[in-house]
Amino acid sequence: MSKLTFARAINAGLRKSLENDPKVVLMGEDIGSLGGVFRVTDGLQKDFGKHRVIDSPLAESGIIGTAVGLAYRGYRPVCEIQFDGFIYPAFDQIVSQVAKMHYRTQGRVKMPITIRVPFGGGIGSPEHHSESPEAYFTHTSGLRVVAVSNPQDAYTMIQQAIASDDPVLYFEPKRRYHDKGDVDETLDLSTALPLDKAAVVSTGSDVTLVAYGPLVKTAKDAALAAADEGISVEVIDLRSLAPVDYPVVEASVRKTGRLVITHEAGQSGGLGAEIAASITERCFHYLESAPVRITGFDVPYPYSKLEMHHLPDLDRILDGVDRALGRHNSLSGLEG
């Protein structure tokens, strides 16, 4: 067991994949001698060579489009999109090619491509550096979408993503890159929790709180704070956003009867809406109150002096917990 930062944990996972499979290649902007703008690929080009850790031209569609060709040739490309807001030039290649190739060729051609995306806000950046675009991709059939919340998962799930024969969007919470945690580097991938499974990270009995990526830590903190008031919150780290592991969420909601979902992305058409609808369909009779969404607003990601208002924090989540419980909350007395 070693103590690693989030970024080092991903680095260690990438290193292991590069060591174990000669078909793994890394591609991206500035990932070579610089080690990426967040240093996630630090040292990998030096150790594995420029042919396996490839500094690409500044063209996101080009990165993903050439990864499709490399996958056709039998490679397992791991592409880094430098920032969440830079992924859109690659949107067509991801949605029309990466996601559909397996279906189009009825399984003849696999797309074992991993697309790493630092995402989310909280780092005081200018425009396009703090977005949460995951719902565009969870809405796209053919992709697997995951968001990691801690160094151990970051280490394990990057290797699982690379080993997956299906394309995986791997969202990394960039504001957590420097958080440290225990990482068991000897963990056997075959016995680790599968990539498409959610995890209950705090058990509780009054409210189910669903989070992923950067907000898992916030949600756990909120659960601790709620406990001080005698409220027992069960926190679920979704890990997989497509598919969502509904059986785990269902089991929790059947127990608690209340559901709060939180994400940084805007509310309308977001993942929270999908989870609220699905859980309502699947366990309507167990629900004691309407599902609550605590999310970013339906605005462009704001300039950094305002981002603390946009991002769900501990207090906003607790306000949502109160709403789910029918306790006094900021919307008490409001109709609709």
Binding site: A67, V68, G69, L70, Y72, D92, Q93, T105
Partner: peptide
Amino acid sequence: DPLRINLATPQIIIGSQSLHATGYAMG
């Protein structure tokens, strides 16, 4: 089967396959 005759399936998105060819060539 693209891998049987080394010919990818018809590509409808205009020009998309030029990147796939380049990536394949990098491989």
